[in-house]
C-alpha cells in the first residue's frame, strides 16, 4: 500500500455529479474527493456507473449536473480548462487504444511533442526511459499490432506517463487481457502506486484492490454504496449488495 499523508491536499473533488444516457440514469448525485497520492480501487457490477464516473473525470463523458474540480480547475465546457485538465490527467483504457498507424516510440512521443511542445530528441529520450521502466525498450520501433495485449497495455501506461500527469485513470486495464498477461500489467501498476501518483483504478482484480489500494469504492446502480479501506471492505462489507458481489467475484471465476 502507498503511504498517503493525512495532510495530502485534495486533487479531485466531485460533487453531486449526475449523468444520464437517454432514459438510463448512469450516475445519481455522486460525490467523492480524492487526495494527492491516493490509490483508489473502484469496483462494482457492470452497469453500476464506475466506468462512467471515471470517464467524467476527464470529460470523455460530460456530466449533466454537479461539479468536478481537478487540481483547482473546474471541469466544464471551457476548452481552456479542459485542455489544462487533460494535460494533468492521464488515462489507460481497457482496449489499450494505442495509435495503430504509429510505432511504439511515436505513440509515446506524440502528445509530449504536440501538447507540451517538447523537442523530438527530448521526447524520444523520455519515451525510451519510460519504455525501459515498463520493460519494453527493445520494442520501441515495432507497431502496436506486433505486441501482445499485455505489452500493449504497458506501452499505453508509458504513453500516459509521458505527459507527467498528476492523476492516472485506469478503466478496467486488465479486463481485455489473456489471464497470463494480467500479472505483467499489474506489476507495472503496483510499482507506479509507490511513486506518489494519484491513481483511480476501475478493476475486477480483487487481489490488486486488496493489496495495492489505499481505498475501495463500491458502485451500485449509479451511486457510491461503500467507501472504505480495503480491509474493511473485504472483511466487513456494510451492505448486503456488496456482500453478494464479493461472493460472486470469489466464486464466479
Amino acid at each position: 500500500m502507498s503511504q498517503v499523508k493525512p495532510t495530502a491536499r485534495t486533487i479531485i473533488a466531485a460533487r453531486d455529479v449526475d449523468k444520464h444516457f437517454g432514459a438510463f440514469h448512469a450516475l445519481k448525485q455522486v460525490s467523492a474527493t480524492f487526495r494527492e497520492g491516493e490509490v483508489t480501487a473502484i469496483i462494482g457490477p457492470s452497469g453500476s456507473g464506475k466506468s462512467t464516473f471515471l470517464r467524467t473525470l476527464n470529460r470523455l463523458e460530460a456530466h449533466d449536473t454537479g461539479s468536478i474540480v481537478i487540481d483547482g480547475i473546474e471541469l466544464n465546457d471551457d476548452l481552456k480548462n479542459l485542455d489544462a485538465i487533460r494535460r494533468e490527467v492521464g488515462m489507460v483504457f481497457q482496449s489499450f487504444n494505442l495509435f495503430s498507424h504509429l510505432s511504439i516510440l511515436k505513440n509515446i512521443t506524440l502528445a509530449p511533442m504536440r501538447v507540451r511542445k517538447m523537442s523530438a530528441a527530448d521526447a524520444e529520450a523520455k519515451a525510451l526511459a519510460l519504455l525501459d521502466r515498463v520493460g519494453l525498450k527493445a520494442h520501441a520501433h515495432k507497431y502496436p499490432v506486433q505486441l501482445s495485449g499485455g505489452q500493449q497495455q504497458r506501452v499505453a501506461i508509458a504513453r500516459a506517463l509521458a505527459m507527467d500527469p498528476k492523476v492516472l485513470l485506469f478503466d478496467e486495464p486488465t479486463s481485455a487481457l489473456d489471464p497470463e498477461m494480467v500479472n505483467e500489467v499489474l506489476a507495472v501498476m503496483r510499482e507506479l502506486a509507490h511513486t506518489g501518483i494519484t491513481m483511480l483504478v476501475v478493476t475486477h482484480e480483487m487481489g490488486f484492490a486488496r493489496e495495492v489500494a489505499d481505498r475501495v469504492i463500491f458502485f451500485d446502480h449509479g451511486t457510491i454504496l461503500e467507501d472504505s479501506t480495503p480491509q474493511d471492505f473485504f472483511n466487513n462489507p456494510a451492505h448486503e449488495r456488496a456482500k453478494s458481489f464479493l461472493t460472486q467475484v470469489r466464486h464466479g471465476f
Binding site: 495503430s100 502528445a111 501538447v115 505527459m163
Partner: peptide
C-alpha cells in the same frame, strides 16, 4: 477509425485539430 483512437488522443490532451491531423486523417486514408 475506431472511436477509442479518438478518445485516446483527446485524453492525452491533443486538440480536436491535432487529433484530426495526427490520428484520424492518416488512419482514414489507409
Amino acid at each position: 477509425v475506431p472511436h477509442g483512437q479518438i478518445e485516446a488522443a483527446r485524453a492525452l490532451g491533443l486538440s480536436p485539430v491535432q487529433t484530426f491531423i495526427d490520428i484520424m486523417l492518416p488512419q482514414s486514408m489507409r
